[in-house]
Computed example of a mutant assay.
Amino acid sequence: MKRILLVFLLLSIAHFSHTPHLKVTDPSSWFNESNWDHDASVAEILAPDSEFYDAYEYKIDEEFVLRKLAHITFFGLLALLFLANVKQNRLRYVKAFVYTALFALSDELHQAFVIGRDGRMWDVLLDSVSGLVFLVGYFMMTRWRKRY
């Protein structure tokens, strides 16, 4: 079941990343037909002067806050599902974090190819830190429960 949940969450994140002009506050936009930017390249997206590294250009409104809360929630849960699916050893938390960070990077690169979306390094950072916070919180909670 834990593998099924992991795959479901990965596919859900990929779906929403592939949905142009997505608005969290408008469920009718959650299934917009996607369109690729065939002229974009990974080299252009990752070039030092690209908008991939720019700060957000959005106003801080309800849509922005809900979108970032979705990032935090989805990638925090993703980190925990990666943790549940890696082999039990002393590096499992590190592996879960690395998998989460790598998926966050691939997700933002993917978004950069979708017309009506943009990929941002700031979101990679937010997603990775969210995963780390959830993993540390889970680690602390399990340690605390073992003590009491």
Rank of each mutant, 00 (worst) to 15 (best):
K2P: 02
F8G: 09
L9K: 05
L10T: 02
L10H: 03
L10E: 02
L10D: 01
I13C: 07
A14S: 13
A14E: 04
H15L: 15
S17R: 08
S17P: 07
T19F: 11
P20K: 07
L22W: 10
V24R: 03
T25V: 14
P27N: 13
F31C: 11
F31W: 14
N32D: 04
E33M: 13
S34V: 12
N35Y: 10
N35R: 14
W36V: 15
H38C: 07
D39L: 11
A40P: 09
S41E: 03
S41Q: 02
V42W: 00
E44Y: 05
I45F: 04
L46H: 00
E51P: 01
F52A: 02
F52R: 00
Y53T: 01
D54M: 11
A55N: 05
Y58A: 15
K59T: 15
E62G: 03
V65C: 09
V65L: 14
V65W: 12
L69P: 09
L69N: 10
A70Y: 06
G76Q: 07
L78C: 05
L78K: 12
L81E: 04
F82T: 00
L83D: 01
N85P: 07
N85L: 08
V86N: 06
K87H: 15
Q88A: 12
N89A: 15
R92H: 11
V94A: 14
V94K: 09
A96V: 02
A96Q: 01
V98L: 14
V98I: 15
L105C: 10
D107I: 10
D107R: 07
Q111Y: 04
A112P: 02
A112W: 02
G116M: 06
G116L: 10
R117D: 07
G119R: 01
M121K: 01
W122V: 08
V124Q: 03
L125A: 14
D127S: 05
D127W: 09
S128T: 04
V129Y: 04
S130R: 03
S130M: 06
L132M: 08
V133D: 06
V133C: 04
F134P: 00
Y138C: 00
M141Y: 05
M141E: 01
T142N: 11
W144R: 15
W144G: 00
R145K: 12
R145M: 12
K146T: 12
Y148F: 13
